[in-house]
Computed example of a mutant assay.
Amino acid sequence: MKTRFLALLLVWVLVACTSTGQTLPTPEPSPSPEAAGASPALVLTFWHSWNGRPAQVLGVLARRYEREHPGVRIRLEERPAVTLVRDYSEAVADGGAPQMLLVLSRYLGELAENRYVLPLNEQRIDEAVAEIPPGVVDGARIAGRLHSIPLTYDSLVLFYDRRQVAAPPATLVDLGSATSAPATETPDRSWGLAYYLSAATTLPYIEAFGGAVWGADGNVVLDTEERRPGTLSWLEWLKRLRADTGAQAIDDFGLVHAAIQANRAAATVDWLHRLPDYQR
């Protein structure tokens, strides 16, 4: 399944801390190396846009890291999500950018293209990425080189109502037929499948048909002799979904979301983090 992620550091620990449902401990200040007569601490600034419980998790992890590495201090700074990338880009130009930045993976390509982030030394972080699924790590690569470390990741999954769908489709090809509902012309009609068609929610599945966008060397292989048949098969699959009268497979998120909220769809493809919304 397709994954998207938040990049930078502290891999996997975040998931463990936020999934227990327990009360988070209050971060305790780490002993100051200056107070013990040691060399001045290395201060690392970490920009993020989290608040509430997720921000508390970052605080706990930062203090834990400081205790394990007494010569390092991590300064967490919350920034508005809507301006985070722009603020960082301006800070790079001014020479005042933080050493660490927590952003969605979709911004990584632009930042790398402008050389606002540079490739990482993979030999030094092999242990940090060893337990992360390879597909997630590959998403952190630009032109074949690792530019970030995934902190959390999300996957596209099929959500379906067991009362209306006897058995989920076994393959993507069966996605429409397994969830299709009889066509009606009523304004509040129900759909077997409500699927928001966008690059983020459909392009990842091109590999299931034998296609690919990027090669191992970072070059585009979408229309190469080897990958063209898979690309065409993927496009045909999208055309069939779009033409399925029992499915609302469109590029209008508002209409798809409205059908789901009104319980007028038996199944949908969405991000895993939204599971609680569908369980209600």
Rank of each mutant, 00 (worst) to 15 (best):
A262R: 15
Y107K: 00
A170F: 02
L235A: 07
Y278R: 09
Q261C: 01
V137W: 03
G230K: 04
F253T: 03
N121K: 12
V15Y: 12
P27V: 08
A258S: 11
I149H: 06
R228Y: 05
N121T: 07
A258V: 00
L197H: 07
P27S: 06
F209E: 06
L58Y: 05
E185V: 13
W234N: 02
W47Q: 03
L104P: 02
A170L: 13
G230N: 07
V136T: 11
K239L: 09
W271F: 12
A249C: 11
A112Y: 06
Q99S: 06
C17A: 09
D251H: 10
T184E: 14
L158W: 13
L120E: 08
P29N: 05
I250P: 00
V220K: 12
A97E: 14
L24S: 08
G215C: 05
Q261P: 00
Q261M: 10
N114C: 04
L8Y: 08
P204G: 09
V157I: 15
V15N: 14
F159R: 09
N219Q: 13
A91W: 05
G254A: 11
D277S: 07
V72T: 14
P229T: 05
L241C: 06
D174W: 02
T245L: 07
E110N: 11
V92A: 04
I149L: 15
S155P: 00
T245W: 00
R162L: 08
P169Y: 12
P134I: 01
T202F: 03
A199I: 10
L118K: 14
P80I: 08
G218M: 03
Q261F: 03
A81M: 04
M1F: 07
P276R: 04
E185W: 15
L9Q: 05
P169N: 13
Y160F: 14
D251R: 11
L156I: 12
V103L: 09
L235N: 01
D174V: 01
F5M: 15
T179I: 10
P33F: 06
R115H: 11
G211H: 06
A167R: 15
L158Q: 12
E110M: 08
W234H: 15
A36I: 01
T23D: 12
E207F: 00
A265F: 05
L172K: 04
L222M: 13
V13M: 11
D270H: 10
L156W: 10
W234F: 15
L193H: 04
G192M: 03
G59W: 06
Y195N: 08
L76W: 10
Y153C: 03
D251I: 02
H48I: 10
Q56P: 01
G246P: 08
A249R: 12
A199P: 06
L146F: 07
S148I: 01
S155H: 09
R75F: 03
A81V: 09
W50V: 09
A243E: 06
S177H: 02
W214E: 05
T245R: 15
L58M: 13
S233W: 00
A36W: 05
T45N: 01
V72L: 12
Q164T: 14
L10I: 12
V15P: 01
R145C: 00
D188A: 13
R240P: 00
